[in-house]
């Protein structure tokens, strides 16, 4: 079980629990604004863009090449950017805070 927090662009803070699936799915399930997941999680749409709060980057690991290529030229991208469909919910992500990019 992992407790994961999303902070939306309206500064709404949503903390939810999850066991499995991707972080994008967890966000969609909990109606987190700004995370749409239009492509269903196959790294094709970038509608699941989040910024990992800096202190948690060691927990989220590195983006794949496809993922970083999808993000590289996005205006909202910074060094903490990830596509949340590429992050799997597991105990390792317990406590992590994501800011929704959009």
């Amino acid at each position: 079980m992992a407790k994961i927090t999303f902070i939306t662009s309206d500064n709404e803070t949503i903390t939810v629990e999850g066991n499995s699936g991707s972080v994008m799915e967890l966000a969609v399930k909990n109606n987190v604004k700004g995370i749409d997941g239009d492509c269903g999680g196959v790294c094709s749409c970038a509608t699941c863009h989040v910024h990992v709060e800096p202190e948690f980057t060691s927990k989220t690991g590195e983006a794949s090449e496809l993922e970083s290529d999808m993000l590289e030229f996005d205006d909202l991208t910074n060094e903490y950017s990830r596509l949340s469909c590429q992050l799997q919910v597991s105990d390792d992500l317990d406590g992590v805070v994501f800011k929704v990019a959009k």
């Binding site: 790294c43 970038a46 496809l66 290529d69 999808m70 590289e72 030229f73 996005d74």
Partner: peptide, 12 residues
Amino acid sequence: VNNAKAYVLGAR
């Protein structure tokens, strides 16, 4: 094809 950069830049 296997080239997300081209896709994203193309869109732009």
